[in-house]
Amino acid sequence: MESVDLAIIGAGVVGLAVARALAQAGRETFVLEQHQQVGFETSSRNSEVVHAGIYYPTGSLKAQLCVRGKALLYDYCQQQQIPHSRCGKLIVACETDEQPQLVEIEQRARANGVHDLEWLDAGALREREPELRACQALWSPSTGIVDSHALMQSCQFDAERQGAMLLLDTRVVSLKRRAEGFVVGAVTAGEEYEFACSQLVNCGGLHAQALAATFEGYDPGLIPPLHYCKGHYFSLSGARPFSHLIYPVPERNTTGLGVHATLALDGQVRFGPDTLYIDAIDYTVPPELADRYYRTIRRYYPGLADGSLQADYAGIRPKLQGPGEPFADFCLQGPADHGVPGLVQLFGIESPGLTASLAIAERVAQLLKQHH
């Protein structure tokens, strides 16, 4: 049976970042991806925002890895000339009763190590964004946008240059432990085979739980429940109203941050994502959702013209919390958590996964090193 040092399942942005980190550390790395291209699911269906690390509970992995990942990501983008922009973000209170939420957000940001937020009053906001209706805002200069496809290509290139192998159109069908490592059963382009590896990283995204469940002898109690949480995006036709990202304060009692205005690197404005829990993977954008989007967006952008929104795309977050449940953090399970040497499982890698990807890779490398 063919044997490799390390296998990574999933070639989204996190799987590719992990492959890059481990290949650069001299590990013989194999990456298995079920689709015919990298980053086909969650990694290519998001806002492409580089998050500052403001909203997540202090001390959570999401907060720590976002702040660390942001610094690593901006450095990497500059070195590799990956298209990105530190366009900044305005977190806005549309009504005065939302202002206390801004205070809470600023305090949490500071506790998370984000010290560059600035307060703007209505006058300063009008100067910056004349189309915006808001009474107060926090300005986050370190929030930005990145070309996620160029980022993934760069990680893939770095990994392959160090000898990593990427197998596309490859589905993992079985996972078994053996005395020294693991046996992976896979199907590539219809052909079934098995190979051995000494270490294994599950970066399966929306499929991470299903992969973990095929693992012979893995304690099912360690696999957190998965909830598909869909977010829809609408794009704006006509002149671009904003030059920064605009985030209204998070609506109370929703799992997302509300429908915000994001920018693509080409200047296109998109609105989204909302949050909708669903039972099966489905990327359609129902046009009738637009009515709700017009209503929500006009709270902060009253000039939004009728007929200017077009259904664009949707993404699905692999959430670990269900509707109405409290915050769930990233789940990075290493040998200390499950007792299986050489195995790391990643569950619930949703936002800020793109921003945190290089920091997650760093953490995975540490978890594997402890037991190498």
Rank of each mutant, 00 (worst) to 15 (best):
A25C: 07
H115C: 10
C331Q: 12
E98I: 11
G59R: 13
T214H: 06
Q78P: 01
L61K: 05
P241Y: 00
A137Q: 08
S47G: 03
Q345P: 04
L276T: 07
L276C: 08
A122W: 04
R27K: 14
A111F: 05
R20T: 03
I246S: 04
S85T: 06
V114L: 03
A23C: 10
L211A: 09
C331H: 12
V344S: 00
E362P: 03
T170L: 09
K70M: 12
L222S: 05
G339Y: 05
I246Q: 00
D306S: 15
T170A: 08
A365G: 08
H35N: 12
T296F: 06
D266Q: 15
I105S: 08
S148Y: 04
T262S: 12
A189E: 15
P141R: 01
H372S: 11
E118P: 07
A93Q: 04
F157P: 03
Q153G: 13
C203R: 08
E191F: 00
A264K: 09
M1W: 08
L151R: 12
R270P: 02
L151S: 09
Y313P: 05
P323V: 00
V18A: 00
T58C: 14
S357C: 11
C203A: 15
Y247Q: 11
L346R: 00
G238A: 08
Q64V: 14
Y233T: 14
S174F: 06
P241H: 03
S140N: 07
I223W: 14
I223M: 15
H338F: 01
L332A: 04
F327Y: 14
G53R: 13
T284R: 10
N112Y: 10
L132G: 12
Y228W: 09
A311F: 00
D158T: 02
R292H: 02
V184C: 12
Q310T: 15
P250D: 09
V187T: 08
A19H: 02
S351I: 07
H227Q: 13
I360T: 10
A124L: 11
V364H: 15
V50L: 05
R171S: 13
I54D: 14
V103Y: 12
I105H: 09
A210T: 10
A137C: 06
A109E: 06
K176P: 00
Q64I: 12
A328G: 11
P273V: 01
A164R: 01
E325P: 08
C77F: 05
D116T: 14
D266M: 15
A239E: 08
V103R: 14
V114C: 10
G238Y: 02
R270I: 04
N202S: 09
P57C: 13
F271W: 03
D121E: 15
L6E: 03
E118T: 14
S357Q: 04
V114G: 06
I349M: 09
D274Y: 07
C87P: 04
I246Y: 02
V49K: 07
L120G: 07
R270E: 02
C229D: 07
P241N: 08
D121N: 15
G69N: 03
A11S: 10
R317K: 05
T96M: 12
I82G: 08
I91W: 04
S3N: 14
F30L: 13
D158L: 01
K62P: 07
A186M: 12
S142V: 12
A314N: 09
A25E: 13
L222W: 07
D219L: 05
I9Y: 11
Q107N: 11
L120M: 11
L22S: 10
K176F: 00
G221F: 04
Y313V: 06
